[in-house]
Design a protein around this nucleic acid. Structure first.
Lengths: 232, 232
DNA sequence: AATCGCTTCAAACAGACGTTTGCCACGATT
DNA sequence: AATCGTGGCAAACGTCTGTTTGAAGCGATT
C-alpha cells in the first residue's frame, strides 16, 4: 500500500520500474487511448509485472493522469521556447514561437507520442487537462498574445488578440491532429516537401503577419531577403 | 444470417431497429469512443435486444463504420452549403463556406454529437475515415480551394492555395476540437459573446481576406458596411 | 391450416479486462 | 543470526466484454 513519491527512498537513475512504466504507459495510451490500452500490455512493454501498476500508481486511472503530465513536461523540455534578447523583432519572435510549437507537435527525430496523448486530452479534457491548462498552457498562450500585441501596435483589443492567437495555434494544432486527413486531401509529394515543420512555420507566420498588416499579402512577389523566414 | 439492406422489405419510417441502433450507436461512440462504448449500452438506449447489433450489422466494428458515415451524411444534410448564383463575390462565398463549416461543427440547436464522432475519426483515421475523405471531404475541400483561387486572382499556386485552405479549415476545426481548452484560456464572458458561429466566421473570413490582400489588415478601422459580414 | 422467412428475445458463451492475493527474494537493521 | 520491510512475481479473482445460440413471435404465402 505504499503510494508513489513516498519518501526519499533513493530514486537516482531513470530506468527504475516507475519511470519505465510511465514511459510505456504514455506510448500505449497515446497509441490506443485510455480504454483500449491494457495494463498487461503496458507492463509487458515496461518489463514489469502486472501488479506493478497498482503497486506504484494505485490504479489505471491515476497512472493515466501521471502519464499525461509526464509526457507534456517531457515534450516542453525537449523543445523549449528560445529566449529572446530585448529588442528582438516581434515578427521574429512570432516565427520562433510558431516554429517551436510545430516542432513540438510534428517533431523531428523520435515520433512525438507525447503529443498524440495531448491531442486526446485536448479533444476530451479530463482532470489531467484542466490542471495542465492552468499551469502550463495559459502562460504559453500569454506569450503569444504578447507577441501579437507588439505586432499590432495597440490597434487590436485584448479580445481580438486572443482570437488571432487562437487562429495561429489552431493552424498548428490542425496539422498535427488532422495530419492523416490532410494527407488524403493533398498530393503526397506536396506533403513531403511543404508540410515540414519549417515550411509550415513560414506559412503560418507569413499568414498571420499579412493578416495583421505587418507583411505584404500572400501572393505578392517579395524578394527572398525580405521574407520573414529566419534561419534557426 | 440475413445482412442488412437486403430486399425492398418495407423500410418506410425512421424509427425501426436499424435506424434506432445507428442513432444510439453514434451518440455512444461519439461520447465514449469505440472501445469504451459497449454494445449493451447502445442496445439499451436504442430499446433493442443485444443480439440486434450482430443481426443487423454483423459486428461492433461494422456498426461503428456505418455510424460514422451515417453521422457525417446526416450533419451535412442538416447544414448544407448554400447554392451561389453565378457572379457571387468570392469574399461572400468564403464567408458562407466558413459559416457553414462552423455551423456544422459548433451547431446551434441540438448538440452535434455527429461532429464529436468525426473528430475522433480525424484524430485517428480508420477505414471509415479513408472512405469519407475520398467521397465527401475531398470535393468540399476543392470548393474552398476554388473560392480562394478566385480571391487570389491567380497570384497563388495550387499548392499555396491548398495551404491557405488548410489554414482556414484548421481554425474552424480547432474551435470545435479544442473548445474545452479554449474555454480555459479566455474569459468565459468573452466565449459567450465572441465565440459564436457567426462571430467566429466573421473573424476567420476577415483573417483570410486580409492575409490574401482582399481586405484591409486586422485592426484597420473599416466602416461596418464595408466589412465582409454578410447577413444570412 | 400449415409453412415459411424475417425478426426478436433471454440466456449463455468464451475470453479479456483491472485488480487482488499470498508468497518469495533480498538488503538493511537489530 | 534472526527480523523486518520493500519490491517483485505467478496465479487467481470477479466482472464485463462482444458474440452466439436456440427458441419463440408473427405476418404473408401456399
Amino acid at each position: 500500500m505504499v503510494l508513489a513519491e513516498s519518501a526519499a527512498s533513493a530514486r537516482p537513475t531513470g530506468d527504475e520500474p516507475r519511470s519505465r512504466i510511465l514511459m510505456a504507459a504514455g506510448k500505449e495510451f497515446a497509441e490506443r487511448g485510455f480504454e483500449a490500452a491494457t495494463v498487461r500490455e503496458i507492463c509487458l512493454a515496461a518489463g514489469v509485472n502486472v501488479a506493478a501498476v497498482n503497486y506504484y500508481f494505485g490504479d489505471k486511472q491515476r497512472l493515466y493522469i501521471e502519464s499525461v503530465k509526464h509526457a507534456h513536461q517531457a515534450r516542453v523540455r525537449q523543445v523549449p521556447l528560445p529566449e529572446w534578447p530585448q529588442g528582438t523583432a516581434p515578427a521574429r519572435k512570432l516565427h520562433d514561437y510558431v516554429a517551436t510549437m510545430l516542432e513540438r507537435m510534428l517533431g523531428l527525430g523520435q515520433s512525438p507520442w507525447q503529443m498524440r496523448l495531448m491531442m486526446r486530452e485536448v479533444l476530451q479534457p479530463t482532470a489531467a487537462c484542466r490542471e495542465l491548462a492552468q499551469d502550463y498552457m495559459r502562460p504559453q498562450f500569454a506569450v503569444l498574445v504578447g507577441i501579437l500585441g507588439e505586432l499590432s501596435a495597440g490597434r487590436l483589443s485584448e479580445a481580438e488578440l486572443r482570437r488571432v492567437a487562437i487562429s495561429v495555434i489552431g493552424q498548428c494544432f490542425f496539422y498535427r491532429a488532422a495530419g492523416g486527413v490532410v494527407g488524403m486531401l493533398v498530393p503526397s509529394e506536396e506533403i513531403e516537401v511543404l508540410h515540414t515543420p519549417q515550411e509550415l512555420a513560414d506559412h503560418v507566420t507569413r499568414y498571420a503577419l499579412a493578416a495583421l498588416g505587418a507583411a505584404p499579402p500572400l501572393g505578392t512577389a517579395t524578394p527572398a531577403h525580405a521574407r520573414p523566414r529566419v534561419k534557426r
